[in-house]
Amino acid sequence: MALQGNLRDFSVTKLLNLIHIAKKSGTLTIQGPNELASLAFLDGKLIYGQRGDEGGRLISILRYNHLLTEEQAATLQTRPEAANDKELGLLLIHANYLTQQAILQSLHKYLNDLVFRLFTWNEGIFQFYLGILPPDDRITVRIDLENLIMEGARRMREFEQLQEEIPNLDYALKFTDRPDARLRNINLSVEEWRVVSYISPKNTMRQIARANRLSEIELRRIVYGLIQAGVVEILLPEGLPPPPSLAKIQPMPKTPEQAGLIKRLADRIRSL
């Protein structure tokens, strides 16, 4: 074992930078708050990844990217080729069901999503096993870490912003009491529906994230959208004042005293 520690002391960004710069080959495993993930690298490039116990296999990746239905995935699992991802890939290509390009794109997307998810982990035990690579039957790709690290850093900034808006996940959510709100036509994504289905004064946002296997940033992004859409609001424990960032934006009284405020806004915009 070449390297081990806690993400608190050595972040995912630093780990990936190290692997990239030192062109390391091996497997990084991270035991996060709710799940296990592993990434494999060859000469500093990301070649393979796995989330949880079943992730990383071609069937689950294609399923993850909606390239297979649940029934198709179940049928494929019964085929002898399912034990070997390369053979399974060939089977799908020869059956004209998927092209090689589509399979590789699917693997890229799965790995990118996995890495971006890891960027949001602030806590977790990591271990880097030098020279350990995925089994030969797995399909590997080669992804340059530089762009992934840059995009991950951008997403971290977004995460910090969302954290500012929803600072505490230990509060519950409740549906807004707005008899005038015309919410019947609202369109929610699958993830949003999953969160909505758990909304109850008994469930904290952290519990909802855990139940849906969502990362903190994914949960915050969804809750933030729902709050802004007027669908839900944060249920504060009794006696606590609302967080300042969630206080409702009040109409500004148009008094002469507010002229100074408008001038400050104008000065700031000019300076941008």
Binding site: K254, T255, P256, Q258, A259, I262, K263, L265, A266, I269, R270, L272
Partner: peptide
């Protein structure tokens, strides 16, 4: 174009300021 966007927002702020005054 950020500069064009700034002009729009400054015009709006100008209108608000005028209303206040």
């Amino acid at each position: 174009d950020k500069e064009k966007v700034k002009v729009i927002l400054l015009e709006l702020l100008g209108g608000i300021l005028q209303e206040i005054e």
